[in-house]
Design a protein around this nucleic acid. Sequence first.
DNA 1: TAAGATAATATGCATGCACATATTAACGTG
DNA 2: CACGTTAATATGTGCATGCATATTATCTTA
Lengths: 233, 233
Amino acid sequence: MTLTDTNSWTGIREVLLRRIHDRIWQPGEQIPHEADLAEEFGCARTTVNRALRDLAENGLVVRKRRAGTRVAVNPPQRATLTIPILREEVETLGQPYRHLILERDLRPLPPRLHGAFQVSLGDDVLFLKTLHFANERPYAFEERYINLEAAPEARGMAFNDISANEWLVHNAPYSHGDLSFFAVSADQTLSGKLDADVGSALFAMERITWAGEQPITHVRLIFAPGYRMRTEI
Amino acid sequence: MTLTDTNSWTGIREVLLRRIHDRIWQPGEQIPHEADLAEEFGCARTTVNRALRDLAENGLVVRKRRAGTRVAVNPPQRATLTIPILREEVETLGQPYRHLILERDLRPLPPRLHGAFQVSLGDDVLFLKTLHFANERPYAFEERYINLEAAPEARGMAFNDISANEWLVHNAPYSHGDLSFFAVSADQTLSGKLDADVGSALFAMERITWAGEQPITHVRLIFAPGYRMRTEI
DNA sequence: TAAGATAATATGCATGCACATATTAACGTG
DNA sequence: CACGTTAATATGTGCATGCATATTATCTTA
């Protein structure tokens, strides 16, 4: 029959998944109760629950108490993407990593960030410009603001040995953040740093992280030409 | 005490999470066994298991049989991003959506796709060029190849009323896919279609989906200037 | 008849138990 | 002492059961 064991929760999940894919259960349609499915598969309701819960987490079915479980009208259309520390990303590619601090100073927060990144008025933040290299070729350019209230030890760090990226991950864990991706055109400055033609299209990422209510850092990463962010769905 | 109930699995998860955030358990460090934690919280091992499993799914701890559970050295650094149907994305912005088929024909698969997108040799695929509008302004430009073996009904579809995007989602569900994001520079053609200056940086996405071993569609979406893909972590 | 109280029901969750499985540590033998 | 075998152990999973909770359907009552 199938490769999958029919009374393991993963096996049951696969069977249910195929029924959805084969449109035996149409989108929006209600599927049998946990108890009925448990009887059909000859297993405990808990096991069916586990399988359905997993499908629900992946957005394939929608579950509501009392209302029952129904096939999602719009299949998942979502992807989990891993955003590794740059050093690890580069090293995974089998290339030696290096980074260089271009600028480092204390300054007031620029006005454009006042909305999203609220630090006490008049307080300086730590500003860093970093260039990341893979195999001695520019890989990404980083501009970062660090809230010294959230990470006071950062004041004494030069970030020459360990990048701010990596240091923060290990020393100022965040609870949540906003992330966005977009494209920018290489201006004169970027072009020089990233070894790109002026005007070439670059992939960019912007991220703000918080620990609870307190902002930790704002970072803008611009990658060298040809960069692709990949994932599987 | 805490807001969270200490013997619900979510409550236990929060307590464990705080211990990780507060670095009571250091990254890489091993944490107590399920059985010990169960005793500490006065609950069943199953409940602790549920909490730990959830943390593991989110990448905060790493679990291995016999070896025990340890705090992940690199916190999650991963984001789930939702890739909505363009029509829905536009309508969510409160703007009227429209699309226009620019080209539609049968042709052999271009050589550059032969590797990733294997269709029977010599078979034609359906090729579509579509322009998507938000509020009558260009929103995204789409180039798509559809494997007619995987979705034979597509042959008879004009895709004027419903976009290929949406039709495929509802009629040829996929099991998995590859997704990548990058930046492209607007050439003469793109510039005209997307109302962008020649040379401006555009955000782009490429996606291949399969149903099992069979490829369904390859699509390349290029967004109008200023597009940002956002998510929360 | 409309609005509110009440019952029925499907999923959600906790428990206690048993067994499976992967991995490590201890052991024994050549 | 090196190497393969065996035992110990932590997590993974399944089962039966009971109660919790959200939501819907039904039944009252004004």
